[in-house]
């Protein structure tokens, strides 16, 4: 399927700017996204193709403006809801709880 993720040959993205001595993760939340995804994957909640498709179904603007682990987070939330592992209400109630806890 063609889509915004199919980037080969596209123009206009600018320089590559490799970061010298780059750390494996740049933020604590990236660590957690990686670990939770791997644990959920290991638990058989989705397969690798479903996960990639979860990323490929992102909207073009969100895909291009989001960082790599934001893509992962999007796919994780989407697949776990679609597969009935969690519901959006459960997630929303957690968002509320943590947002309030942070203030």
């Amino acid at each position: 399927m063609n889509g915004v993720h199919d980037l080969g040959g596209m123009h206009g993205f600018g320089p590559i700017n490799p970061e010298p001595n780059e750390p494996v993760f740049h933020h604590e939340w990236e660590r957690r996204v990686f670990g939770v995804m791997m644990a959920a994957f290991g638990g058989g909640h989705f397969n690798v193709d479903q996960f990639r498709h979860g990323i490929e179904r992102m909207g073009a603007v969100e895909y291009l403006s989001g960082s790599y682990y934001e893509h992962w987070l999007h796919a994780l939330e989407a697949l776990l809801q679609e597969h009935g592992t969690i519901t959006v209400d459960e997630l929303a109630s957690k968002w509320k709880q943590f947002a309030e806890g942070a203030h």
């Binding site: 939340w29 996204v33 939770v36 934001e70 987070l73 994780l76 997630l91 968002w95 947002a99």
Partner: peptide, 8 residues
């Protein structure tokens, strides 16, 4: 994203 992954 920090809040989202904590919640999840």
């Amino acid at each position: 994203p920090e809040l989202r992954i904590k919640a999840l």
